[in-house]
Amino acid sequence: MNAMAKIPDIEAAPTALELCDLHKSFGPTPIIRGVSLGIARGERHAMIGPNGAGKSTLFNLISGRFAPTAGSIRLNGEQVSGFPPYQLNRRGLARSFQVTNIFPRLSVFENIRCSVLWSLGYRYSFWHRVDSLRDANAQAERTLEQIRMTARRDVPAGVLTYAEQRALEIGITIAGNANVILLDEPTAGMSRREAANAVELIRAVSQGRTLVIVEHDMGVVFDLADRISVLVYGEIIATDTPEKIRGNKAVQAAYLDSAHA
């Protein structure tokens, strides 16, 4: 069974992700205040902005964790706002979390394998033996190699080191061959060397897919991104290539200064 065949026809939609006048309020407090953004298929897009700008909330809206208060989200051309996370995942969107969010008592291998089962069409099957699923096991092993965790295959995920858990977090996200991948601060809390490894990994796994990444490390952002959006107080004040963002006066005033202050 080919995983890619499950994903809706993406040839027809040049835009992988399209946000249109998106709003989100928690009670009376507006957090996202009218975000519109189109991300092309295959683009690596970084989302930056000061703390509290709403980057994680925006991710939570796109991935279905929260429903937007107003506005629309299109995934590969399909209107998906208000869909639960599993519906979005089945349509080819996967995300990682800023705070590690894994299956602690399952082995590393089981963590990854659980993330490929739906994409391969096994659904709620109680008539397949999971150890006999060649495609699922092969895809899980491949993902383990990609995130360089093969040696830790049978270790319960809960006892991994922090950097290993971060790598597993990315592994769970990419294992199901989603074509739109959201990574929420994948290098947070890593040493410089670990972060460099993580960037290498992200570059490799996002090949041929659409990537949206929230990141605080400017080195990572400018290294990786095709385009950058700057989010300040729930609004995107600029979206452009890394060079132009670097020279953008409004961005410098609103974000880069305050970030270094």
Binding site: N101, I102, C114, L117, R123, S125, H128, L133, A136
Partner: peptide, 20 residues
């Protein structure tokens, strides 16, 4: 089985299950 394994995943972390 696949669903049996997903039961374990739900036990460990129901939120993440929704994202796979």
């Amino acid at each position: 089985t696949p669903v049996g394994r997903m039961c374990n995943a739900v036990r460990d972390n129901p939120e993440r299950v929704e994202f796979v």
